[in-house]
């Protein structure tokens, strides 16, 4: 046996593989920078206009938060398609709270939105983790149902900026030291989620469950509880997004956030989160969201009508999963040939 040399080879390779996995986020970031350079060369106002830097950071903030929640659920080998509807309900709740309870503290509203979202996410989690129904179908169902509740609740009316407190709206578009406050919230959420996934047992167990659910049970991990937490987290972040959505846009109807679930999944997948779980990071999802939103904003400046946006989203999703597949095949091939050479 040539155990020693084999192990060394594999060690070096694992290092390289690990480096590449880390560089997946870097790759998306580079794509983003490239986009920035190309767009700026066509239209410098994109970055150097009066609102350039602000818009660049403000626009993706909500999607970054949604994508973070989506990434957590995807890592556990599940999916949450209801986030757009949860966002809508939470946004409507935010508006109603301000109207029905004048003078209500903003912080309390934020808390209410987050808790409400977590509750809605928990419904998904219960159905998936305890009733053992597939997440895809459950969250498709709640996508429908939550949106229906939203329409029924709002009676197809709207909430306008005039009905909302001024300081709340100011927060939505305000800046701190020139950085949009929403972007700061998004970065804080991203940091917290990334820290948890990397440094806490619970976070690592998400990866384990997504990597092999059966093995996770054999290990004695509490899979049910973890899945509940993952869905509650995704719901809570969608709830938070709902509050921020209200603050940012001021106008809400029953369709707020509809279709955003697709963008959230797209952002996560583009950022390297595997749709069948076990790998990826919230960083990737966040940068994916940044890239996605920026591409959509850049298209008109590059002379492409903005109704091609969705097609670009589709191309990015397909490109990302095809790329992942090719890379994983190549890696598997390399592992095989290394084992092979150790035998001969």
């Amino acid at each position: 046996m040539t155990t020693l040399t084999r192990a060394k080879n594999e060690g070096a390779l694992a290092g390289a593989a690990g480096a590449f996995a880390r560089s997946r986020e870097l790759g998306v970031l580079l794509a983003f920078l490239l986009l920035l350079i190309v767009t700026v060369s066509q239209n410098p106002l994109f970055l150097f206009g009066p609102d350039g830097p602000r818009d660049l950071l403000l626009s993706p903030a909500i999607l970054v938060i949604l994508a973070t929640g989506q990434a957590i659920v995807l890592i556990t080998r599940n999916i949450d398609l209801s986030v757009g509807s949860v966002l809508g309900l939470s946004a409507w709740l935010t508006g109603r709270l301000f109207i029905d309870f004048p003078g209500i503290p903003v912080l309390l509203v934020v808390l209410a939105g987050v808790c409400f979202g977590a509750l809605l996410g928990m419904v998904n989690g219960l159905l998936v983790a305890i009733a053992k129904a597939p997440a895809l179908v459950v969250t498709l169902g709640t996508l429908y149902a939550y949106r229906g509740i939203n329409v029924a609740w709002s009676h197809s009316s709207m909430i306008n900026a005039t009905q909302l407190p001024h300081d709340f709206l100011a927060f939505g578009i305000g800046t701190v030291f020139g950085i949009p406050s929403l972007a700061i919230v998004a970065v804080v959420v991203l940091l917290a989620a990334a820290w948890y996934l990397k440094n806490k047992r619970g976070g690592r167990e998400f990866y384990a469950i997504g990597s092999d659910p059966e093995a996770a049970r054999l290990y004695g991990l509490n899979v049910t509880r973890r899945l509940l937490i993952a869905f509650a987290a995704s719901g809570a972040l969608a709830g938070l997004s709902g509050v921020l959505f209200t603050a940012r846009y001021g106008t809400i109807d029953s369709q707020a956030g509809s279709g955003l679930e697709l963008s959230a999944v797209a952002a996560a997948v583009i950022g390297g989160v595997a749709i069948f779980g076990g790998s990826g990071s919230v960083w990737g999802a966040g940068i994916g969201a940044l890239l996605l939103v920026s591409i959509n904003r850049a298209l008109p400046l590059l002379g492409i009508p903005d109704f091609w946006q969705q097609a670009v989203v589709g191309v990015l999703i397909l490109g990302a999963i095809v790329l992942d597949r090719i890379l994983s095949l190549r890696q598997a091939h390399r592992f095989t040939s290394i084992r092979e050479s150790s035998h001969d």
């Binding site: 806490k200 167990e205 990866y207 384990a208 092999d212 093995a215 996770a216 054999l218 076990g278």
Partner: peptide, 30 residues
């Protein structure tokens, strides 16, 4: 130790060994 090993393919060897009972330092960090 089962006949067929049950490991998490995506995770590192170290994590496979310590999954569910990671060693911790301050603030419950791994």
């Amino acid at each position: 130790i089962y006949q067929e090993p049950t490991l998490f393919p995506d995770l590192s060897v170290t994590e496979n060994i310590f999954m569910g009972r990671h060693l911790l330092k301050s603030f419950g960090r791994i």
